Computed example of a mutant assay.
Amino acid sequence: MKRPGTESPSDTEGESAYTAGERAMIDYALRWVNHGGGPDADILTRFDMSAREFYREVIALLDRDPNSVFRCFGMSPVMVTRIKAVARRRIWISS
Results as ranks from 00 to 15, higher is better:
V33P: 00
S8R: 12
E7K: 03
S94Q: 14
E13D: 11
Y28C: 13
Y55R: 09
N67M: 07
K2D: 00
K84Y: 01
D40M: 11
G5D: 07
L30S: 13
T12K: 13
D42S: 14
G38Q: 07
P66L: 12
F70D: 10
G74R: 04
E13Q: 11
E7I: 01
Y28D: 08
V33M: 09
A29F: 00
R23G: 05
M25A: 03
D63F: 01
A51I: 11
A60L: 12
H35P: 00
G74L: 02
D27V: 13
F70E: 15
F73P: 02
V86T: 13
G74C: 06
I43H: 06
T45G: 04
R23F: 01
R23N: 02
M49I: 13
N34M: 09
R3D: 09
A60K: 11
M75D: 00
S10M: 14
M79K: 14
W32Q: 10
V86I: 15
L62H: 00
V69E: 02
G36K: 06
F47P: 10
D11E: 15
G21T: 07
R23H: 02
Y28K: 04
I91N: 02
F47K: 14
I83L: 04
I83F: 01
G14N: 00
V69H: 00
M75R: 01
D42G: 13
S76Y: 04
I91G: 02
D11Q: 14
S8E: 09
M49V: 13
Y55C: 03
R46F: 04
G14K: 01
V33W: 04
E15N: 12
R90F: 08
D40H: 10
I91A: 03
E15C: 05
F70C: 10
A20Q: 08
D11V: 13
E53I: 08
F47S: 09
P39V: 14
L30A: 09
D65F: 05
V58N: 04
V80I: 13
A29Y: 00
I43V: 15
P39Q: 14
R46E: 13
E7L: 06
F73L: 03
S95L: 14
G14R: 01
D63H: 07
E22L: 02
D65I: 12
G5E: 02
T19H: 01
G21A: 04
G36E: 02
E7F: 05
T12V: 13
T45S: 15
V33D: 04
S8N: 11
V86L: 06
M49R: 10
P39G: 06
